[in-house]
Design a protein around this nucleic acid. Structure first.
Length: 757
DNA sequence: CTTTCTATGCTTTTT
DNA sequence: GCATAGAAAG
């Protein structure tokens, strides 16, 4: 009896096919993690491959850790801890820390997070005098990030820039690259880009890793982007033992540059690739899978597959409507409480999933009201919270004063009377003399022109020096306590209202706990833990990484956060048009956006093992105004017999939710139709609907000012040329050949095309 | 230099 | 509805 006997046919084949490129199309819940762990075990145990010759790339640190543990359990004492299991990002950091000097950076580079990037971009736009009302920094950041994910350099982008706006963005991009290089800093995308650059610049380094990683595994392959593809192709070029696992139906990171073509064209790119499909689902009941299949079948261009399960349906999938988001939340929480109190269910086996983080709030409030312990995953990442970043800023400055952004952040936090003017003066001096900001501040006494600030700056520098000395004789947890005490951080908290201050104190306490855990790892070796490596670890953690299975709390998270997880009982909430699918995806006019939303729905549905409930609210507060929503098209795509509809009956006289079908979403025939309990598809009821109604008739002042052959621009798709127009008015079907996204057809009323002169 | 007031714009989704 | 940014006042 071997450990491989428990695998089904295709799973076994996937484990045993070790040489050459392999694509494992693994449907949701089909045991892909099992396959990967068994495959790695097989390589080590049966084929005698040395563990450090194996690479496995996962999507999150949590998944990496779990995989390592599971392999170790399968084959104890086989050295499984030497297998490289990590995310793309941490793998790249590891490589770059060793070799980035080959491309001109120092190996002690700092990693900038989104906030850092934002303040850099902001500074540059101010310097270049670019009006942020014309181009906001968020969209500039997006363009830069998109470029990097497609390996488009600043110079290349500049060459391609056509209009004023793009030229301006190009100049920001160029400045941005210069500044990061000058600061010896990399942003998140750079971690991947620079690794590719390194490989191209230094064949020796590439060769080393090619030889080292004889067997390469990539999980969640459907969500890889171009850089990641380039990275993987280079690494696998010699041994060609590349095993990728993914599911095109679960690709949900297109907005981040993920290219579904990576998985769809794998067989063409890697010649002779073996394709193995895993279609038996071991997670969900057949009833849940039927619903998942029904929804996802509305997407085009997918690899054909149909998940099945031999788990019998315990309870049909339910759909419940509520008057508003508050009753939705309390209704769901009450029901969960009942299942725990009288049904003997574990709270930790239930999850509430929603489209946007903002939706967590009403559920949190309901939990507090009913005394349900919960954990919100995501939202503002723990390490991105202001108070945490403040303390980390101190730690970075203590570790080395090289990170100017960190110094800027803390120099007047808490308030020390060192204002922007003084900091700018020091920054100019630093730039002129090739110093870091910290070094310049340390010389404040010798630089004329600081006036009264000089003494305050010296006070700050001395505080850092004292802490620096302390850092050499205590662990990180103690150091953090000292930072908080010495700089009197508490004085900042006292300015806030008690509730906020308390939550910040709790966060700081949690940071100390995390540091203490880290300290403990070093205790056995009787070494002081390195501040640098602590900061490094902290820079790359995702929120999901910190979820402990043992905690037994109700989990609240976005659909994106739920990827790769499973729960006995799942509530998929906010199933409303313009919430899910999101407003932006419905107005963009790009059908691919809706398809991505639908895949997200598929991911959500397939998280449930036994019980699944979909809920919707008829009205919801969005941006401070009450909006009326129709039931999500994804609910309507589920055939009548598969769904148990609950909640208030609509359609009674006087109700604004009369069942009335207007087919406002185009090809009306495909939408489920009216059935009791589902409010109609007519968007034109109640107040505040004017801004919800995106249909062609909105406003009545619709004008098309472009014609065939004209250059136009689209909010999401960029620029293109109109190649055909069919019909007139808002219903006119416009065919546009976009410069970067190919030919698309869209309704003029939806597309909001702008004519370019 | 800091605090307070007012305007604005904003929400997808995240390693 | 809230958080943030910038202006105005202290």
């Amino acid at each position: 009896m071997s450990i491989y006997d428990s695998l089904n046919g295709p799973q076994k084949e996937a484990v045993l096919t070790t040489d050459g490129p392999v694509l494992i199309l693994a449907g949701a819940g089909s045991g892909k993690t099992r396959v990967l762990t068994h495959r790695i075990a097989y390589l080590i145990e049966e084929l005698g491959v040395r563990p450090f010759n194996i690479l496995a790339i996962t999507f999150t640190n949590k998944a990496a850790q779990e995989m390592r543990e599971r392999v170790d359990k399968l084959i104890p004492d086989a050295g499984a801890e030497d297998v490289w299991v990590s995310t793309f990002h941490s793998m790249c950091v590891r490589i770059l820390r060793r070799y980035i000097d080959r491309i001109g950076y120092e190996t002690g580079f700092t990693i900038y997070d989104q906030d850092d990037v934002k303040s850099i971009v902001k500074g540059i736009m101010k310097r270049l005098d670019i009006d942020t009302k014309l181009v906001n920094e968020r969209s500039v950041m997006k363009v830069i990030s998109d470029c990097k994910n497609d390996l488009i350099s600043a110079a290349e982008f500049e060459k391609e820039a056509v209009d004023m706006k793009e030229k301006k963005i190009a100049s920001v991009y160029r400045e941005y690259e210069d500044e990061l290089f000058k600061n010896n800093a990399l942003d998140f995308d750079d971690l991947l880009v620079k690794t590719v650059e390194l490989f191209d610049a230094s064949p020796k380094v590439l060769e080393y890793y090619q030889n080292r990683f004889r067997y390469i595994h990539v999980d969640e392959y459907q969500d890889t982007n171009s850089v990641q593809f380039e990275l993987v192709s280079r690494l696998a070029a010699v041994h060609k033992n590349l095993c990728v696992v993914g599911d095109d139906d679960q690709s949900i990171y297109r907005f981040r540059g993920a290219d579904i073509r990576n998985i769809l064209s794998f067989e063409q790119v890697f010649k002779g690739a073996k394709v193995i499909k895993l279609e038996q689902n071991y997670r969900s009941t057949q009833g849940i899978l039927d619903v998942a299949n029904a929804v996802i079948s509305h997407n085009k261009g997918r690899k054909s597959k149909r998940l099945w399960s031999d788990r019998q349906t315990v309870e049909p999938v339910r759909f419940t409507t509520f008057p508003d988001q508050k009753t939705e939340a309390s209704g769901v929480i009450t029901e969960i409480k009942r299942h725990v109190d009288t049904g003997g269910e574990r709270l930790g086996d239930t999850a509430i999933l929603y489209r946007t983080n903002a939706q967590s709030r009403s559920f949190e409030e309901a939990c507090l009201l009913k005394n349900i312990p919960y954990k919100v995953v995501g939202g503002v990442n723990f390490y991105h919270r202001a108070e945490i970043k403040d303390i980390l800023g101190y730690l970075k400055t203590i570790a080395n004063g090289r990170d100017d952004l960190a110094v800027r952040r803390i120099v007047n936090m808490p308030k020390r009377g060192i204002g922007d003017a003084s900091v700018e003066k020091a920054a100019v001096f630093a730039a002129e003399n090739g110093l870091t900001l910290y070094e310049a501040l340390a010389m404040a006494e010798e630089i004329p022109g600081f006036g009264r600030s000089a003494g305050k700056i010296t006070g700050f520098i001395n505080q850092i020096r004292v802490l620096k000395a302390k850092s050499r004789e205590m662990g990180i947890a103690d150091l953090i306590r000292n930072v908080i005490d010495d700089v009197e951080y508490e004085s900042e908290l006292l300015k806030l209202d008690e509730e906020q201050a308390e939550s910040k104190r709790e966060n700081l306490e949690e940071l100390i706990n995390k540091a203490a855990e880290y300290d403990q790892k070093y205790e056995e070796s009787e070494m002081l833990p390195s501040l640098d490596s602590f900061l490094e670890e902290v820079a790359l953690v995702a929120d999901i990484d910190s979820v402990e299975d043992s905690e037994n709390r109700l989990l609240l998270m976005t659909l994106h956060g739920a990827k790769g997880l499973e729960f006995e009982r799942v509530y998929l909430c906010g199933m409303e048009e313009d919430v899910f699918p999101s407003y932006l995806s419905t107005v963009s006019g790009d059908p691919a956006d809706i398809e991505e939303e639908r895949r997200l729905a598929y991911v959500g549905i397939t998280r449930a093992k036994t019980y699944l409930t979909l809920t919707a609210a008829q009205t919801r507060m969005v941006n401070g105004e009450t909006q009326f929503h129709n039931v999500s098209r994804f609910v309507k795509e589920i055939p009548d017999g598969m769904l148990k509809v609950e909640g208030e009956r609509r359609g009674s006289a006087g109700s604004p939710f009369k069942t009335s079908r207007t087919g406002s979403y185009g090809s009306s025939g495909s939408f489920g139709g009216s059935r009791p309990g589902i409010f109609g598809t007519n968007p034109g009821f109640g107040k505040d609907v004017s801004n919800l109604f995106k249909g062609p008739a909105a406003g009545g002042d619709f004008v098309i000012d472009y014609a065939e052959g004209d250059r136009v621009s689209h909010a999401m798709m960029g620029q293109g040329t109109v190649i055909a127009m069919d019909g007139s008015g808002p219903d006119c079907t416009v065919t546009v050949e976009f410069d970067t996204r190919g030919v698309k057809k869209m309704k003029a009323g939806f597309a909001k095309l702008k004519k370019l002169l």
